[in-house]
Computed example of a mutant assay.
Amino acid sequence: MCGLCGLIGEDVHWSDPIDTSLPGRRERLRRIASINQVIAPFRLKVSDVQGASYLVQGPTGKQGIASGLEQLWQTAEEI
């Protein structure tokens, strides 16, 4: 994936706020912080990949890429 895709951003998801005072990138980072709080007991961590995907990392080093929130939860379950 090229860097331009990271600038364009991901598709709109049903959980995205309709009206927010935060810029898109900051809102995405806030969402990732919330996700990390939820999955911390499972020793998983999620990080941003150029504003277009999510990187899910497990405690053993296993990783997976997810393009949206639905795929993120599936990837977390697999790891």
Rank of each mutant, 00 (worst) to 15 (best):
I32C: 06
S15K: 03
V46A: 12
D19R: 10
G24R: 13
V49R: 13
I35T: 05
W14E: 12
T20A: 08
S47P: 00
S34C: 08
N36I: 00
Q37R: 15
L29P: 02
K45M: 12
R26A: 14
R43C: 06
R30D: 14
K45D: 02
I32E: 04
L29W: 01
P23I: 07
V49C: 08
V38D: 08
A33L: 04
L22F: 11
S21H: 13
R26P: 00
L44T: 03
Q37P: 00
G24T: 07
I18L: 15
T20D: 10
Q37H: 09
D16N: 11
P41G: 06
L22V: 11
R25V: 08
L22C: 08
P41F: 00
W14N: 10
S47I: 04
P17L: 03
S15D: 07
R31L: 14
W14C: 09
A33I: 03
L22R: 13
P17K: 00
R43H: 14
I35P: 02
I35D: 04
D16A: 07
G24L: 12
I18H: 10
Q50L: 12
S15C: 09
I18R: 15
S34I: 07
E27K: 02
D48H: 03
Q37A: 15
V38L: 15
K45Y: 05
V46M: 09
T20I: 08
V46K: 01
S15H: 05
P23V: 08
L44E: 00
V38R: 12
D16E: 08
V38K: 11
I18M: 12
R25M: 01
S21R: 15
S21T: 14
N36D: 08
V49M: 09
S21I: 13
Q50S: 14
A33K: 07
V38C: 08
R43K: 15
R43A: 15
K45P: 01
A33M: 02
I18G: 13
I35W: 08
P23M: 04
P17Y: 01
P23H: 07
D48V: 06
A40K: 15
I35A: 09
D48A: 05
L44A: 07
S21Q: 11
Q50D: 11
R26Y: 02
K45I: 03
K45A: 14
P41L: 01
I35K: 01
T20F: 04
R25H: 09
Q50W: 09
W14M: 12
R25A: 10
L22P: 05
W14I: 15
T20S: 15
R30C: 09
S34R: 13
V49Q: 10
S47F: 03
D19I: 10
P23C: 10
S47G: 06
I35S: 05
R30Q: 15
Q50H: 12
A40S: 13
Q37M: 10
V49T: 11
D19E: 15
A40G: 05
L22W: 09
I39Y: 05
S21K: 15
I18K: 13
Q50V: 07
L22G: 03
L22K: 12
R26I: 10
R43N: 12
V46P: 02
